[in-house]
Amino acid sequence: MLTKTKYLFILAATFMFAGCASVTESGYYWGNYSETYYEYIKAPSEQTVTNHLNELNSIVDTSKKKGLKVPPGIYAEIGYITAKRGDNDNSIAYYRQEAELYPESKGFIERLISDQK
């Protein structure tokens, strides 16, 4: 028989886990990644790139706040957009973050950096 406090505790725990539902099985937070990427695919423009970039930054911020690992490719994408906008130094910094977080990306990252020069 559940006492009132136990019941309230279980209820609270359920709400807590509902909040955690946005963290996926390998421990990532993706936000609205697919939505903003799809909007860019459908209609490539400065605006849709900016919206996607904002979402990428938001994923990084939220991941840091929640103590989660930034998902694969996010830093690299920010670096790529940054490079396309002409900021080479910052883009390389983001590329290196990707390679550090995911060592298997090193070959690809080195290629992106050398393509940029």
Binding site: E25, Y33, Y37, Y38, P72, G73
Partner: peptide
Amino acid sequence: PDFLNATVAQPLADKGYYVLPVPI
């Protein structure tokens, strides 16, 4: 294909793979 390309990275990464960034 646009819908599929936009949504493919996340489930593969969530299964524990390093997925090279799809947009790039």
